[in-house]
Amino acid sequence: MDRAEFNNAVIEQLDACYRMAIQLTRHPDQAADLVQEACLRAIRNFEAHPNHTFTEHGAGIRAWLFTIIHNLFFSQTRKTAVRSEIGWDADSTQAAASDTREGPDEPPPAWDLRTLDWEYTDERLKKAIDALTPAHREVLLLWGVEGMKYREIAAVTGVPIGTVMSRLHRARSILAESLEELRAETGWKSDPQGHVTP
């Protein structure tokens, strides 16, 4: 990959990188700074290792950039008082340790989510996602938007695959709970087969 190809590849991933950064920081300016700093690191790394193939994370340059963003965010968070402002009360190591606990083994609901009005669903999901920790929002993004496999998410976030599964499990349980509440509020009911009727 020459420098021009590298530049194009980075530009093509800008939206994905910004999505990742905004999920971590929840602040547009901080997200933009994070992406720019990640791009700087990527350029330095590329110039130092021009034969870098970007394949070690299994999904090419996008996963590589995600890894840089992840490492930058969590190392900056450890260094500053930002973590108290964003409600993140554990460093990544502690979070990884605690995330191996799944909590009660409640199976997912069986009703059809698509029978709810998308406007209400998206609004409720957005609120529930906003209330999650950055580590949980991050795995949700990599799973839900970027379509990554567990092993790829584990490579980007540098945690065991079991921790990825636990974080996803917890985040999905919280989201399912909020949607159950929405369904109850809007008066939709399901029959024993899970088909929802008003």
């Binding site: 800008l14 910004y18 999505r19 992406v35 009703w111 059809d112 989510l113 998206d122 399912a176």
Partner: peptide, 27 residues
């Protein structure tokens, strides 16, 4: 039914979390 719920939840999460795009100033 539970698997269908999880798949539709993934679609919905994808919709909700993919709305942001990089601003022109960042580009």
């Amino acid at each position: 039914g539970r698997i269908a719920f999880e798949r539709s939840l993934r679609e919905a999460v994808g919709r909700v979390q993919s709305v942001e795009t990089a601003p022109e100033s960042l580009r």
